[in-house]
């Protein structure tokens, strides 16, 4: 993964293909979401797919903040032989998730939420990877490809 630029204030520079953020506050969640939207537009995702990846990013960034106690996010444009897409990686060194099946089942929340963020994000994207263990933190990677 190549991180082209590291910044924290005004969103994505016009020529950037990737962005990295600290997630320590609600304002940071908004920044990550804005970067995701800009990169999704640049990757020419449809309006529906833009909305889907932005919503997933919003959910996962908030989980990093609330459940993970803060962490980092990387959003980037990715390419393979056939397609262009947007990938986002969220990392924290929080408590981790003990029962991933339950956390992904939908409707389970330890924080008074709807418990739909994690499971919903999985349905919103094309590829979803959850790497977590109790005491080892959490890493979620999602990718949405342009159709």
């Amino acid at each position: 993964m190549t991180i082209v630029q590291h910044w924290s204030i005004d969103g994505v520079p016009a020529d950037a293909q990737a962005a990295e953020f600290e997630i320590q506050s609600d304002a940071d969640v908004v920044k990550v979401r804005q970067a995701a939207r800009q990169l999704a537009q640049k990757a020419a995702l449809s309006i529906v797919d833009q909305t889907k990846i932005v919503t997933a990013v919003s959910e996962l960034a908030r989980n990093t903040l609330i459940h993970g106690g803060g962490g980092t996010a990387q959003v980037e444009i990715v390419k393979n032989e056939k397609r262009v897409g947007v990938r986002a990686v969220f990392m924290d060194e929080g408590p981790g998730i003990a029962d991933t099946t339950r956390a992904l089942s939908g409707g389970f929340s330890t924080g008074g939420g709807l418990g739909l963020g994690l499971s919903g994000s999985r349905r919103l994207v094309d590829a979803f990877d959850l790497d977590t263990a109790p005491g080892r933190g959490t890493r979620v990677t999602v990718t949405k490809w342009a159709r």
Binding site: V48, K52, L116, G117, S119, G120
Partner: peptide
């Protein structure tokens, strides 16, 4: 809007 409707459904809200 359509994109919001689809997102809400996928989220399961």
């Amino acid at each position: 809007r359509p994109q919001i409707a689809q997102t809400i459904v996928a989220l399961g809200v």
